[in-house]
Design a binder for these strands. Structure first.
Lengths: 237, 237
DNA sequence: AAATAAGCTAGTGTATGCAATAAGGCCGCA
DNA sequence: TGCGGCCTTATTGCATACACTAGCTTATTT
């Protein structure tokens, strides 16, 4: 667990709410796959890393549990979530539903400034795609999720935006567990296509592109029922 | 603040997680409108009522803050949320989107047992509608929300179910603040119509009914920009 | 030698104490 | 008499201390 870099940085900046800072740091670590699913998040350990008491850590962990990124078991502790294939399917089903609505609303509200921001973001994504190494890969996954979060923000509905934050984070976990080729690297610029359709005001096409895009991501997963269960069952026979 | 009835009851039943019990009790109180928007939820006071320390109360309040039912201000405390008209619009926009998806999925999965449960529920709703008095009114509102939550459960997506829990709760708050005639009492049995369409497997019609229903609820609101803001602006001129 | 039970340890659940902050009251001043 | 600043007080933020639970180790018995 190496999160030390974040700690000092966020502490002096955020005098206001340290629990939130810890939450964000852990969230990033989970989404970036620096913390593997199943990893135990010991209160004392995290507290030591961030130089706060367990009280504050508990708040942060509870928030993450609410988002579904962390699974909390009474008297046992908190662990990075280990979504089942069924969980994964539900995440993507939810995304298909909500992102379709977001695309429709975003198309109506998209400003020139938004388009410019998206262009900058797409360039950044491309840079990461071009780069090699695990660090660039992590950055690419993060940036890929950020695209969807930006879109949700443009849609102007704070509630849907919050839902998308959660769904994108959960998606990262799912991809970490079940992703085959690593990234949604089916050799496509889905995001660029979506933006293009949005710019021309073609809502229907943009929606279709989005659904295809989510389909691509999901198709890249290997959701066959986990081996661990099969193994257990085999031993019981 | 009279929540005493719940406290003793939930304590002996739930040895497992007292914070959750308190959360549920407060949640019910807010959704039932026993706690008005803006009411301060003092940690010490709530703790005394439930006979737990502030630590546990804080967890409960934080959970409610995450659901949007409670607004937490640093060094000031937690208050029952006071959604703005814009918040209200976003709640219903989100519901239109998500419940359309839920109806479609529920139609596919609806079993006979589900139908029977819905029928029982509708009867209960009717009983409350027939009864007079504020107590019956509260029960009616609650039951009305429960219909939507049941539907979400039938749809079989835990994530969407959680989102609906939050949206239904927020709706109750909004109705408490901006509701004109009190309940969605536009003299209709929207829920029964939705169930009927679902039974016949007519997804399109069920979806349409659901959207109409949400429209009915929203139409019953008076979302003209709050007087407080207008007053402030008037004073600033 | 294997299995079971008892104690031990590590870590979470809860309460409480202390420090800090914000709201309200009080006094002085114009 | 009205207004502004200071102080008091109630309440939250955080840390720590204690209680309890689960899992592991060990020892004893069959």
């Amino acid at each position: 667990m190496k999160l030390s870099a974040k700690s000092s940085l966020s502490m002096d900046a955020n005098q206001e709410d340290r629990a939130q800072a810890i939450r964000d740091a852990l969230r990033d670590a989970i989404v970036d796959r620096r913390l593997a699913p199943g990893t135990k998040l010991s209160e004392a350990e995290v507290g030591a890393l961030f130089d706060v008491s367990r009280t504050v850590v508990r708040y942060a962990l509870q928030m993450l549990a609410f988002e579904g990124l962390v699974h909390s078991e009474r008297n046992r502790g908190a662990f990075v979530s280990n979504p089942t294939p069924e969980d994964a399917r539900q995440v993507f089903a939810s995304r298909r539903l909500i992102e379709a609505g977001i695309v429709a609303e975003a198309a109506r509200r998209l400003t020139k400034a938004d388009v410019a921001a998206f262009r900058r973001h797409l360039e950044e994504e491309d840079r990461y795609k071009a780069s090699r190494g695990p660090e660039a890969r992590r950055a690419e996954i993060k940036a890929s999720g950020d695209f969807h979060i930006m879109l949700a923000r443009v849609a102007g509905n704070a509630i849907l935006e919050k839902f998308m934050d959660e769904l994108v984070a959960r998606s990262s976990l799912v991809i970490a567990l079940y992703g085959r080729s690593g990234v949604s690297s089916c050799g496509h610029d889905d995001h660029a296509l979506i933006l293009e359709a949005l710019q021309t005001g073609d809502v229907e096409r943009a929606t279709e592109m989005m659904l295809h895009h989510i389909g691509h991501i999901e198709a890249d997963l290997d959701l066959r029922t986990g081996e661990s269960l099969t193994l257990k069952e085999a031993l019981n026979l």
